[in-house]
């Protein structure tokens, strides 16, 4: 029943489709990124209390959103792969993980850079930053597990189980860290809540988030194409160069 519906789930069929989509999403990402940065640096007003340094949220917040969203998407693909046993799903999850980890790092680094002028120190055990740090560990664990298992299909299934366990645990970890934070009275100024959100700020952030989204799609498609070629190098369609 699913064989027709999921025709594109075959790596061979997906490969050329992905190739056509990459440039489309890549250009969208570039244009939206330029527009978003323009709003961030030239349109959005200077913040009354934080001055210019707050502008880093235009990168920090979309990166943090993407980092969490991509884990969800990754777990979604992983679950799909487990249930339907499609090979492409595991490849998609593998392709998404590095991008998710990258956004996590971006969110952490921008958080550090913002922390110095605002709190006078690079790292405070703020609930959001701490959760982001543990999200990074989850991404790293996922990638390390896939890396360690030689058989790609076994790696896909094991990775999928881990991703699903992770996706159930992320809200629990997030909640527990917040609970811990209120208990120990950590930093009360949160980066995301800092400036009262003006409409232009929201617009800038949404445009940047959209740019990050397009970028993620473009990069994951490029990566999944590389994975397809690497895994199916013995298959006739790859060898004959018909791709």
């Amino acid at each position: 029943m699913f064989s027709n519906l999921f025709n594109f789930a075959s790596p061979q069929a997906f490969y050329p489709v992905a190739g056509r989509m990459i440039s489309w999403f890549g250009w969208s990402a570039a244009l939206l990124g330029v527009a978003g940065l323009y709003i961030a640096f030239f349109v959005a007003p200077t913040d009354a209390t934080q001055g210019e340094s707050y502008r880093i949220i235009f990168i920090h917040v979309p990166a943090a959103w993407m980092s969490m969203f991509l884990y969800l998407v990754m777990a979604g693909w992983a679950g799909l792969g487990l249930v339907l046993n499609t090979r492409l799903s595991g490849m998609m999850a593998s392709a998404l993980a590095p991008t998710g980890a990258m956004f996590t790092v971006v969110a952490l680094v921008t958080g550090l850079l913002w922390g110095k002028p605002t709190w006078g120190t690079y790292w405070v055990w703020d609930a959001r930053l701490t959760s982001e740090l543990f999200l990074l560990f989850l991404y790293l664990g996922f990638m390390a597990l896939k890396e360690a298992i030689d058989d790609p299909q076994r790696a896909d299934r094991a990775g999928a189980i881990l991703a699903l366990v992770g996706v159930v645990n992320i809200p629990i970890i997030y909640f527990s860290v917040q609970w811990w934070n209120t208990l120990h009275q950590g930093a009360s100024v949160s980066l995301t809540r800092a400036p009262s959100m003006a409409a232009t700020m929201l617009a800038g952030m949404l445009v940047m988030a959209l740019a990050a989204w397009m970028y993620s799609i473009a990069v994951s498609l490029a990566r999944v194409r590389a994975i397809i070629v690497a895994r199916e190098q013995d298959a006739a369609w790859v060898r004959s160069g018909t791709r």
Binding site: F134, A144, A158, I173, F175, S176, V177
Partner: peptide, 27 residues
């Protein structure tokens, strides 16, 4: 179970489960 038969299983297990132990530690 996820790291069964995998090289470097002991360290890898730590990498996988320690972040998931966070809520138990906090509470």
């Amino acid at each position: 179970a996820l790291t069964l038969g995998v090289r470097g299983a002991a360290v890898l297990t730590g990498l996988l489960v320690l972040p998931l132990f966070v809520p138990a530690l906090v509470f």
